[in-house]
Each structure stands twice: as C-alpha cells, then as structure tokens.
Amino acid sequence: MDSIMSARRILMTADGLRLAISRMAHEIAERDAGAERLLIVGVQAGGIHLAARLAQELQQWRGQPLIAGQLDVSMHRDDLSQRPAPAIRPTNLPGDVQGATVVLVDDVLFSGRTVRAALDALHDFGRPERVRLAVLVDRLGHRQVPIQADYVARKVESLPGQRVEVMWSEDGSEDGVFLNQP
C-alpha cells in the first residue's frame, strides 16, 4: 500500500516528469518568453538538468538558441559555520544579468535559503530586470524565509525529516522523483 509512511514513495514517474517540464515551459513561455533578454539559470547542483531541459523546450518560442546557465551559491549561504563547507561548483551565466529577465531554476524548494543565497549570488553579476523562480517540487509549509516559486511542477506535503530525491537520465539513472524516509 502506498502510504505517506512507506520508505520510498514515488512522486513523479519518468512520463510524469516529462509532461510536467513541458507544462512549466509553456507557462514560462506564456509569461516571459517575450522578454527582450531571457536567461534560464539552474542553481548548482540540483537545478542544472531541469534548467537545461526548460531552455531546450523554450527555444521553440524564442526562435533562437537558448542555453541554460549554472549558478553556484555555496559562497553565499548563511550557514557555513554550521555545516561542512559545501563543494564549490562552476558558475556559468549565458549572458549579461544586467537588465535581463532571469528564471532561476532549482529541483526542490524547501526552506527557501538556497534561493535566498542564489538571489545574492545572482546580483553580484548585475541588476536583473526581474527574477522568477521555477522549481520541480515545492515542499509546502517548510519555508524559513518569505520566498515563493512562480512556476511549480508539483506541490508536496511532507514531513521535515523526509527527503525529496530527484533522479535524472543525464546522471545515468531513469527520470523520477521520490519521497524518502530518513
């Protein structure tokens, strides 16, 4: 039986993930594809595959190549002295942040602190015209800072100790989203 207490519960199948990303891309296109300069930026490390897939889907409305960027936020976190120093991954932005419409992309929105750090990290590169937030999974009720996503594939009720695991074919596994017990 698929109860909330089982060890590993599937939240999205490979097909479900594909459809959800397509729907998010449509929503972004409807609202933001007309922006003069659009940057799709994945937050390292969880957001980069989703950002790349969204950029791929959005190209059809932009009529030009759209390449996703990556943003590392480890140097902008507020909890360095409370945890082992996180690994620093590359930051590559596909264009000038100044004046651009930036869609920040992450896999899971939980406390909101990663997004807070990402906003700070992003602003080191310039002042965007506007910033949106796109996430695959929004874990409802766990926010520690006032941050909400503009584009959400799936809203999930969960307990604090549980973990949302997102698997990507780019990493050699089958696409899927799972809710794991600690």
Partner: peptide, 26 residues
Amino acid sequence: TVLDTARGFKAVGNRAIKTVPALRGK
C-alpha cells in the same frame, strides 16, 4: 578538495564584484 575549491574561488577574482559573503561576520 582544496585544489577543486580554489578553482571556484579563482573564478570569483575575474568578476566585477570580487567579494563573496562566505565569511561575513568572522
């Protein structure tokens, strides 16, 4: 680990804003 971490920090030196808040308040 130190060498990989340093590679990330070297990239910061090429930005317009060369400071990051990692050790803020320390």
